[in-house]
């Protein structure tokens, strides 16, 4: 692994910082992320809802592997990111892994959701 690749990975938190079914916000050196836990699986995601940018550590509810944003009830499979129910955009994940009991994520580039409607670009105001 090259130095550049290695520095792209950061320790985000300990696996013991988060209980099963919990979402918590953490700061990396450059930006914030949310870590979610489903059983022994961890996912590192952008801190905002893909719908209307609600802060997911406040509005998100994780139950049975499903993430629900309580603001407008968009839902996703937390393990795959796939949208469920009324959600119209998938969750995106930072690449992550467990190292010696800590959650590490590859955070070289901030993941952001494109909030524009897919077809908005054609409208010339």
């Amino acid at each position: 692994m090259s130095d550049a690749t290695e520095t792209a990975w950061q320790q985000v938190c300990s696996t013991t910082d988060i209980n099963d079914g919990e979402l918590k916000r953490f700061e990396t050196s450059e930006f914030a992320v949310v870590v979610a836990r489903v059983g022994d699986e961890f996912r590192v995601i952008p801190p905002f809802c893909p719908h209307m940018a609600e802060p997911l550590h406040e509005s998100g509810i994780c139950r049975g592997g499903t993430l629900t944003c309580s603001k407008h009830l968009w839902q996703w499979n937390l393990l795959t990111g796939e949208e469920q129910g009324p959600a119209e955009r998938p969750l995106v994940f930072y690449e992550s892994e467990i190292r010696h009991g800590d959650v590490w994520a590859k955070v070289d580039q901030e993941l952001v959701y494109e909030f524009d409607e897919e077809d908005d670009d054609d409208f010339e105001w």
């Binding site: 509005s59 509810i61 139950r63 049975g64 499903t66 629900t68 309580s70």
Partner: peptide, 9 residues
């Protein structure tokens, strides 16, 4: 939010 979490669970 608490009630929603309960019912979803």
């Amino acid at each position: 939010t608490g009630s929603l979490a309960l019912l979803l669970g």
